[in-house]
Amino acid sequence: MSIIEVSHLSFGYAEAEVLRDLSFEIRHGSFLAIAGPNGAGKTTLLNLLCKTLKAKSGTIKIDATVIESYSSKTLAGKVAVVRQEFVPVFGFSVIEMVLMARTAYLGTFGFESKADRKIVAEALEMTDTAQFASRPLGSLSGGERQRVFIARALAQDTDILLLDEPTSHLDFKHQVGIYDLLKTMQLEKGKTIVAVTHDINLAAQYADVTLLLGADGSYEYGPARDVFTCEQIKKVFGVSVFAGKVGKENFFIPLGKFAKDSGQISRKP
């Protein structure tokens, strides 16, 4: 059953059209990776899926209900968002920040119940962030902070998690750590994961389905091995790639003008 249905969606900023007649569906409990060049509309699509932006035309349905029907509060019970990393101005601690995920569920005078605290404790545990729960967010490393933001999204207790480049600025270990965590949430908690990423190799390894957006409004949707091909990548990103395979999935190394030994590369998947 589809939890997100996008139908003939178009959106533009002023005169520039970013998304054009985009249609796809995401099944409940699946993992979608959205890739594409800068300016192709990846973050825009994410913002449309959480109602931060309003579509020019077309419809988005969450749980078979058009997104416009949801108030901020009811949508917060369905969709949680992890945006591109930023450091807050004031010194909120990790636990204080994760507790804010319960804002939509708070009573009249705004204090968390025992049940709220239990959910938050579980989110901290699952993301391995309980160890620095008392520390100010600003004192954590990039990878730790990102896990805290994911913990907050998890504590919001929604079926859908939207993530905007969750591994940007992170080293290999932390990139894999974040994707392992997302996959665990998908498999153990049944969450539907939608992640915008520039890393098509990790996307291919972890996502069930992928969406490759082109800067001209074109798009490809399907399993990674069908969407991420040398031809598609050349067409969408405008770069040649070296391709190989890890298991059944392709991996790619971009090749620039000064890439070493690029003339010797011939293997294609």
Partner: peptide, 24 residues
């Protein structure tokens, strides 16, 4: 004081607060 929990969320920016259920 009545809207103070929402001010907590708004400290993280409008988009973040909205996705946490606040009528920003």
């Amino acid at each position: 004081f009545y809207i103070s929990p929402k001010l907590n969320a708004l400290s993280f920016g409008e988009d973040d607060a909205r996705s946490m259920g606040v009528n920003t």
